[in-house]
Nucleic acid binder design. Sequence first.
DNA 1: GTCTATATAGGGATAGAC
DNA 2: GTCTATCCCTATATAGAC
Lengths: 229, 229
Amino acid sequence: MSKAKQPAEGAASRLDGNALRTQRTRSRVLAQSLALFNELGEAHVTTGMIADALDMSPGNLYYHFRNKGQIIEELFDRFEQRVDVRPRASGRAAEAIEDLWLYLHLMLEAIGEYRFIYRNLDDVVGRNRKLRVRFARIVDRQAGAIVALCESLVGSGAMQARPAQIATLAQNAIIVSTSWLGFAAATGRDGGEAAALGQGAFQVMSLFAPYLRGEARAHLDSLILEYID
Amino acid sequence: MSKAKQPAEGAASRLDGNALRTQRTRSRVLAQSLALFNELGEAHVTTGMIADALDMSPGNLYYHFRNKGQIIEELFDRFEQRVDVRPRASGRAAEAIEDLWLYLHLMLEAIGEYRFIYRNLDDVVGRNRKLRVRFARIVDRQAGAIVALCESLVGSGAMQARPAQIATLAQNAIIVSTSWLGFAAATGRDGGEAAALGQGAFQVMSLFAPYLRGEARAHLDSLILEYID
DNA sequence: GTCTATATAGGGATAGAC
DNA sequence: GTCTATCCCTATATAGAC
């Protein structure tokens, strides 16, 4: 499926100095692109800006990447791996709520690291058939993970919710996680990325609160208070 | 604050035939722009496409509007008026839940009509200082309206929630309302605008369900079932 | 008020030297 | 592998005739 990306490969298949250098340059481009995309929005970052930031010529950048779309797709690859986390699912009630907390926390961190994807979902993902399908699959996995965590909570008596409610709850949790950063930016209240992330975690966790029972609910409240200071 | 927009005004201040025609042309441009923005996304609609769709020359379009940004701002004006709805707030419990339902429904409709704003919040609103402030004010009003409706529900015993919970709930309701359409499009499951809107209403209303008590909750469930068929 | 023609600018991408 | 130079296209916006 994936073809060789570098032209100079037929002669020597060993990883010589040049190949290493190539890989390093590609990585630098990806890292710099991610930083600029996150800061300015993908559409407002030109290939020239990326090259400039690396003291590199535009031509050289295009030696390593066919086009701008390829940079985006490779960043999406990395995000896809980064976000593919199997949640821990311990049986005990006291830990189940922390499992949920941990999982959502990891998701929000990953979203923050690759927020250019979420800042403009429509342009980055919505218009690219391949990415749209892959993104939908990521969302499905996330929903599945959240549902499993909720079922674990229900099993231990810490949560009270019917399957249909859990499904809707999981959807809403993903929507809020997905949209919070962009929403905060659009209303101009992000006030720093760290603050926005903490507030986002609070918003997401509060979705689950009304379904929790007994000490699980108190436990969640304390986790929230701890997190947002 | 707002200067005269048409040059031919010093001579005759009465509304003669030309002035009427001008206004009509401006309206046609705005309507066509809205349709195209909603369909393709603001960034992907050129002034030439708008002119073409109206069998009009680009030059003529620029006679009526200084630039593309002005079209966007005037559409935002219309949206701002469209969305500025004071919710009804009746005292009785049975009606209070319908007041909330009605208000959210109206919001979702308005968002659907001007979905190009929400489809790409960052580009349309986030980068324009004036629009960003105005959008934040709209969100504040919406939050205030939802909070008031919830307080009314609490007062009549139909809802059980503390003020802090209500504030967070209102925020989440706005985030889901705001983001649902874009999210559905990005995951490729919108399956028609009407369906997406109904599903969005369902997602939003389900946020309130766990805080409702007694027959109010049953009432909401029936409203939801009715709405999504 | 509307048109045609065009100036202008930016950014993606390529050619060819080194 | 990297650079310089440049092509090419698209889109905003303007000039000036009718």
